[in-house]
């Protein structure tokens, strides 16, 4: 089994920052696992601008922001395993992973950092009745299809939920020549940042229907429309307010959930309400030497904040490793009895 000082799982903004920070703090043998072909995580599909305002004092797009860190990682001796899926981690800090080039690998590390990000809540999770026709996407997967794969999502779309990804996709769809019939939000106020409501919806005259929700989908092979209704303060549809919006795409942007399957398998604690990993002030989980950062801990509204947290996890992991090394180097002295009280 190959040994490293630090293994980082996830090559998005959190993992990149954590690995670089640990390297700068004197950790020499670092391995980073990423399941996609490219490093950068979700930043690669976030082609809009607004990243880096806090950290770099300039307005960057997601890929540009990612590249600043990826470039530093490339210039360092951090071992990057892209296109690699981590299958399992364990409390004693071994990692089992697989990819096409190396096959199965098992590595041991003095410390682990989990930077596994988050997933989107799906249409099934919120229980919209109707068949399962083509044309229903989570906003992030639609973003991936458009921005990375180059597919058109639909001619006329409805977006359910006013989270930031949904708002940003409303603008993307409009710019690419699709019509966005409406953004439908069950709450009385938009859930995304106000700056996104202004520059994604208001700029393009896209209607935002607050206190409304999608009550069913229509269409068997391809989505043909959605039925919407106004909701009351308990989020229940109000009878008599139903209407039909014809559309061939529905984008669901109803929240993000930390992705912690690996941690859960290893018996690491998460918060019951948010599913985020439970960490102390140094970003250590309840498993000694296993740290966590980014959206795997809690959902962040800005990538800059994820980077800051990743750096903290990287520093903490570094001091944990150096501390342990210090202790093992001291051990021979203990053994020769000089420190033993007579």
């Amino acid at each position: 089994m190959e040994r490293f000082e630090l293994a980082v799982i996830g090559g998005g903004p959190a993992g990149l920052a954590a690995a670089l920070e640990a390297r700068q703090n004197g950790i020499e043998r670092i391995i980073l696992f990423e399941r996609e072909r490219e490093l950068g995580g979700i930043l690669q599909q976030c082609v809009h601008s607004g990243f880096g305002l806090h950290l770099f004092k300039e307005e960057l797009t997601g890929p540009e922001y990612a590249e600043r860190f990826i470039e530093s990682v490339r210039q360092s001796d951090i071992v990057c395993k892209t296109d690699t899926t981590v299958l399992e981690i364990s409390g004693d800090r071994t990692v089992k992973a697989v990819n096409a080039a190396d096959g199965f690998m098992e590595i041991g590390a003095d410390a682990l950092i989990l930077a596994t990000g988050c997933r989107e809540r799906t249409r099934e999770a919120i229980g919209i009745p109707g068949d399962r026709p083509a044309g229903i996407f989570t906003a992030g997967s639609a973003q991936r299809f458009m921005n990375l794969e180059g597919y058109r999502i639909g001619k006329r779309a409805v977006i359910l939920g006013s989270g930031d990804v949904g708002l940003i996709m409303a603008r993307r769809l409009t710019l690419e020549g699709s019509e966005v019939a409406a953004v439908v939000e069950a709450m009385p106020a938009p859930s995304g940042l106000n700056r996104n409501v202004i520059q994604c919806l208001d700029d393009f005259g896209i209607p935002l229907l607050l206190s409304h929700t999608v009550i069913s989908t229509i269409g068997k092979e391809r989505l043909e429309g959605v039925r919407i209704a106004q909701v009351d303060s308990r989020m229940q549809p109000i009878a008599g307010t139903e209407s039909l919006i014809p559309c061939d795409a529905l984008l669901v942007s109803v929240g993000l959930i930390p992705e912690n399957e690996l941690a859960l398998q290893a018996g690491i604690s998460t918060h019951e309400d948010s599913h985020g990993l439970a960490v102390d002030e140094r970003m250590q989980t309840d498993a000694e030497g296993i740290f966590a950062c980014g959206n795997a801990v809690s959902i962040h509204s800005l990538a800059d904040y994820v980077t800051v947290q990743g750096r903290l996890a990287g520093r903490s992991a570094a001091s944990f490793i150096l501390d342990r090394r210090g202790r093992t180097e001291l051990e021979p002295m203990y053994q020769d009895g000089r420190h033993t009280a007579k």
Partner: peptide, 9 residues
Amino acid sequence: LSCIVCPKE
């Protein structure tokens, strides 16, 4: 206006 430069708004 609501400033859109950063999330402080």
